[in-house]
Amino acid sequence: MKDKQNSYLMLSRYIGLATLLPTATFVGYAIGYLLDKGLGTHFLKIVFLVIGIVAGFVQLIRELTRDAAEK
C-alpha cells in the first residue's frame, strides 16, 4: 500500500513538472511586459523573460534533485 502510494506521489510530481518550465517563462515575460508598460521602459520584458526561464530551470532542478536525494 505504501509503495503504491509512493508511486502515485511520484507520478503526480512528474505530471506537475511538465508545465513548470513554460508557465515560469510565460509569467516572467508577463511581469516584464506589465512593468515595461507601467514604467515606460522596453528592456524589462527581456530581463524578466530570462528570469522566468531561469526560475523554471531552478524549480525543475530542485524537484529532480529532491527526488534523487529521497531515493
Binding site: A24, F26, V27, F48, I51, A55, G56
Partner: peptide, 18 residues
C-alpha cells in the same frame, strides 16, 4: 528574490492550465 517570485507566481498559472 526575482527568481523565487516568478516561480511562485507561476504556480497558480501552472495549476490552472493543467
Amino acid at each position: 528574490v526575482p527568481i523565487e517570485l516568478v516561480s511562485h507566481m507561476a504556480r497558480p498559472l501552472s495549476l490552472t492550465i493543467r
